[in-house]
């Protein structure tokens, strides 16, 4: 049973816990930024649109790794604050995937037929009610596949956080490797398997929730 290298698992699973925790928290944060920026880019107010577009362009136009370094190393020096690696990672992942998610939110809302806004206006709904009761529920269904993809991207994106010394599953793998470089293939094989199981589980969850939302809507 030696070839299975089961002795590698305990430290790797410890790291996986961090990876999953980071993924879940970052998904929630990214979702909030996606909504905020997605709706903000459709705002009536030009200034709100400008701020949100700037945010989205900056975070889509630069790499996650540099954003991570900025938030963890540079920002604390400039602003004189101390962020834990976990906090910095959540902020970077949340802002980065939130920027991509805002595009999903925006395009889904724009994809709801114009007649829906017109019908809700004719019923004298307020702009907020039109969005909340008519547009958003229809857009939401269209957002799910896009969000599902981004969640899986985010999970895989978390592997960069080992570079700011957060002890995720990749970090644990790299540490094990530095003890015994000859076990590199086994260590990396486990990383592949663990990431695959995690992302596939996420895929299944997303699919299940999609089916639940679409069901009964006729």
């Amino acid at each position: 049973m030696d070839w299975l290298s089961l002795d590698l698992l305990p430290p790797l699973l410890k790291g996986l816990k961090i990876t999953l925790l980071l993924t879940v928290i970052s998904i929630v944060v990214a979702f909030c930024f996606a909504l905020l920026a997605g709706l903000g880019r459709l705002s009536r107010f030009a200034i709100v649109r400008a701020i949100m577009s700037t945010y989205v362009e900056i975070f889509r136009g630069t790499s996650l790794l540099i954003q991570l370094f900025w938030i963890y190393f540079a920002l604390p020096m400039l602003l004189d604050v101390r962020l834990s690696a976990m906090t910095a990672a959540v902020i970077a992942l949340g802002l980065n995937y939130g920027a991509y998610g805002s595009e999903v939110v925006r395009s889904s809302i724009l994809a709801v037929p114009k007649g829906q806004i017109e019908a809700s206006t004719a019923l004298n709904m307020t702009p907020y009610q039109r969005m909340r009761r008519v547009i958003f529920p229809q857009a939401w269904v269209m957002m799910l596949p896009g969000f599902g993809n981004l969640q899986i991207e985010l999970l895989k994106g978390t592997s960069l956080v080992y570079l700011i010394t957060l002890a995720d599953v990749t970090y644990q793998g790299m540490t094990l490797r530095s003890f015994d470089i000859s076990r590199t293939p086994a260590i990396l094989a486990w990383l592949l398997i663990l990431y695959f199981i995690a992302s596939y589980t996420l895929t299944l969850i997303v699919r299940l929730s999609e089916r639940k939302v679409v069901k009964g809507r006729g």
């Binding site: 037929p113 007649g115 829906q116 229809q138 269904v141 809507r217 006729g218």
Partner: peptide, 9 residues
């Protein structure tokens, strides 16, 4: 409206 515009959800 010509195309009804009912709320499908």
């Amino acid at each position: 409206f010509q195309h009804f515009n009912l709320f499908p959800h």
